[in-house]
Design a binder for these strands. Structure first.
Lengths: 136, 136
DNA sequence: ATCGTTGCAAATGGTTTGCATTGGC
DNA sequence: GCCAATGCAAACCATTTGCAACGAT
């Protein structure tokens, strides 16, 4: 039973958050918590099936929702009905490649937004810049 | 046949863009091109049904797609699988009220984003700030 | 008469839910 | 033995599509 680094890390994280560990959850978490991609639920499913052929789609969806609920994962709806998962739970901005659809994180410090104080009558709790374009 | 200001304006706009005018299209365009709300397709449908009880959902969806295609309308996917339509086709930012879900436009000049030049290897074609919070 | 538009209903794609089964503790 | 997690299939919701009927030109 070769447990990878990602799996051991995932196991640790699940336990720390009082989430009962199981093979599907371990496989899902090991992938989704380690990747820099922004996979959709179905992409996670495809990926996890390679390792654990029996997992059902429902389990993947339910586990992702669980991880979001426990704040281990963020859910973004950035484009075209694509609900996407992101292990980076710190504040950051997003870049969407128009050609590939690929979503990348932009470190928080890299962009600065000014003028927010000028928004009258609103209490801002969060904001982000969404950049669209293409890699060259 | 009482034609409102919005309807006459919509008729004009449709004609100018070589879109054949019909009662459903007129009702849809009159509402969606005039409102400051960011209605979903179904919200448009509800609204239009009040005036034209017979319209089918499909016609509303198809007409909205047509208006987007003709660049009379923008489509945004800002939150929670909500595909939303916006008659403001100029660049602008968005504010999402977390309590009501209401989406408002923020004029382009009101916020400034700096640091975009520092994004290496990408050609930026568009960007916007998405602000979440609550009105007070 | 033709072509575009409509309404209906069925198909689709992504996500959730119900339920009986399985497996940890 | 009990409760939680799983797999499967059915349900669901928003959107799209196929098609026959209709209306304007």
């Amino acid at each position: 039973m070769p447990s990878t680094v990602a799996e051991r890390l995932a196991q640790r994280i699940l336990q720390d958050h009082h989430i009962q560990v199981s093979p599907p959850r371990l496989a899902i978490a090991a992938y989704v918590l380690a990747t820099d991609d922004h996979p959709s639920a179905d992409q996670v499913w495809e990926r996890v099936k390679a390792e654990l052929p029996g997992v059902s789609r429902a389990t993947v969806y339910n586990t992702l929702n669980l991880l979001v609920e426990k704040s281990l994962l963020c859910e973004h709806v950035l484009a075209e009905g694509r609900r996407v998962y992101d292990a980076n739970t710190e504040r950051h901005h997003h870049f969407i490649d128009e050609r590939t659809g690929r979503i990348e994180n932009i470190p928080w410090g890299q962009l600065k937004v000014s003028g927010l104080e000028g928004l009258g009558g609103v209490k801002v709790s969060d904001y982000q810049v969404v950049v669209r374009g293409r890699r060259i």
